[in-house]
């Protein structure tokens, strides 16, 4: 196999490929996160809504998404969904960066389903008497959620949400299957160009680990500074 050539990783063309991949991975993760969290809150509230039809819609979403692997989601949104679009929209999509768009759509829907469950658990952790007290004061469902429940639920919810963020970061790697040039894709590309699998994958491993540890560290910091307060 030869010696480990660290120079390969520190500068030069292959270094640039890997770095570009890392940057794209981070961008995809960040974009997905920003889109998924609001969607997750909506889904969580749907699941808790007083109206049965709304609850059913939320449940269908969550169960439908979570029981299908992310890879299948990506295949559907990249190969299948564009075919369903009207012709003009389809052409516009293919002219642009269809791989990344499909990846972000798939990842957003997937991640939101998991986050919605964590937010729902967080809300359910708040004693129901809090909800009753707010309603007794005259607040409607949404107002109760906004002013009383969600602020309290936040502290309980943040640790599992950070854990889902960690999962999201790792899930960006699966986008490689539809040709998104993120970190994993670039590492494989470097490998096939140079046959130096150890160096390429060492870079990728180190990059994933570093960001993962940073996210985990954030969770520990949050837990230390903002422990959940009970009544």
């Amino acid at each position: 196999m030869g010696t480990f050539d660290i120079a390969l990783l520190l500068s030069g063309q292959y270094h640039d490929w890997l770095l570009r991949g890392l940057v794209l991975s981070l961008q995809i993760a960040a974009t997905t996160w920003v889109l998924a969290v609001p969607l997750a809150i909506v889904i969580a509230l749907l699941r808790l809504a007083p109206l049965a039809a709304l609850r059913a819609a939320g449940t269908v979403y969550v169960e439908g998404i979570r029981n299908v692997p992310l890879l299948a989601h990506l295949l559907f949104w990249y190969f299948g969904a564009p075919e369903l679009l009207p012709e003009g929209l389809k052409q516009w999509l293919y002219a642009g960066n269809v791989e990344v768009v499909s990846a972000v759509v798939a990842l957003t829907l997937y991640t939101a389903a998991y986050m919605a469950e964590d937010i729902r658990s967080g809300i359910r952790a708040i004693p129901v008497v809090q909800f009753e007290a707010a309603r007794a004061l005259g607040f409607g469902f949404l107002a109760t959620m906004r002013r009383v429940i969600l602020p309290q639920a936040l502290r309980v919810t943040v640790p599992p949400l950070i854990s889902q963020t960690l999962n999201l970061w790792k899930d960006t790697s699966i986008a490689t299957v539809i040709g998104v040039a993120e970190l994993m894709y670039q590492a494989a590309k470097v490998e096939s160009a140079t046959f130096r699998s150890a160096e390429a994958f060492a870079f990728a491993t180190a990059a994933y680990l570093t960001v993962s540890l940073a996210i985990t560290g954030l969770a520990a910091w949050y837990h230390h500074h903002y422990p959940a307060r009970t009544a």
Partner: peptide
Amino acid sequence: YVVRGVPLLMVIFWAYFFLPS
């Protein structure tokens, strides 16, 4: 911590590229 910090795809690639050797 290491295994949980990397994607499963990474572990698969490590196995795929290094098991033969």
